[in-house]
Design a protein around this nucleic acid. Structure first.
Lengths: 160, 160
DNA sequence: CGTTCACCGTTATGAAATAACATAACCGCT
DNA sequence: AGCGGTTATGTTATTTCATAACGGTGAACG
């Protein structure tokens, strides 16, 4: 599921549990309600799985974990939920991993990640690159609609 | 092959032809020779296809176009060549498209692209984001090994 | 109360990438 | 030349990732 890091002790968990998880889901419900969007059962379930995970999840990880007692979901169910969650800003796709993470930085932003190739951690950060990319785009008449920024390397815990 | 742009006349060609293509390949040979690397037949062929293309090519486009008279290559042949070309800096993978382009900016750099979602053009640019990403990384002890930056939007020719 | 629209479940298929193993070319050495 | 390590290629098969297409269901709206 994730590239395990054998030379370091277990990483701290990032996934939400119990009350924190429930609170995050309730918050998501509220944000949906505010914009006439519906956090339906499969969408909610996929968001729950993402929020509870300690590392980026692949689509087929979600498909396998979807059911309550081992029954997997059908691929379109999960892909449709992911599409919705991305559209509303609840989740991001990490292109270079074919994997998904819940959004960790609420509010308007360009999603950017520092990905550890050893332990699999993907830290979401908030770069101020809008200005630069915009400047470059303006020089050529290009209109930016979205930016993907993904750094690969080693996190502090995995550096030698 | 590329998302055609029906509301604008044909785009200028970016692909190299004839003498320019031959010169680029010869230059690549020279750069390989200087570092004890070998630009073998399949590698050269894949590079030739990338250099001649007007837009990012998918791996299976390369596989289909590989042979002289329609015979496709086997997937590993092309994937291995692409791996080599990326390692030497002759080509880049665009993660958000699952596609490949020849490197258009010689020399050390972080590859960055302004991708037009309408006509498929992918302009390589040279952002000065190393400083920013490095600063962010240093703050958390993260060691950067590579950065993917891909903007999606509309190029000047495709804007309404 | 019926239409409309978004959403869902399901089957099937398509597209992208790699595993695993066998063979061949290159290179430096004696 | 002949050997042996190394690098690259050929080949088959499989795995992983993603979407097309279609029919049914239920909330929302006049």
């Amino acid at each position: 599921m994730s590239t395990a890091c054998d030379h370091h002790e277990e990483h701290q968990h990032h996934g939400l549990r119990g009350a924190a998880l429930a609170a995050a889901l309730t918050s998501a419900e509220a944000r949906c309600a505010a914009t006439q969007e519906r956090l339906t059962a499969p969408r909610r379930r996929v968001l729950e799985l993402l929020l509870g995970a300690d590392a980026p999840l692949k689509a087929y990880d979600l498909i396998a974990a979807f059911g309550d007692r081992g029954e997997p979901a059908k691929p379109p169910t999960v892909y449709r939920a992911l599409e919705f969650l991305e559209r509303l800003g609840f989740a991001h796709r990490i292109e270079s991993l074919n994997a998904y993470v819940p959004c960790r930085i609420e509010g308007a932003h360009v999603a950017a990640f520092l990905i550890c190739d050893c332990c699999g951690e993907a830290a979401e950060v908030q770069p101020d690159l809008a200005a630069q990319v915009r400047a470059m785009a303006r020089a050529t008449g290009y209109e930016v609609r979205g930016v993907t920024l993904e750094a690969h390397g080693l996190c502090a815990g995995c550096r030698p």
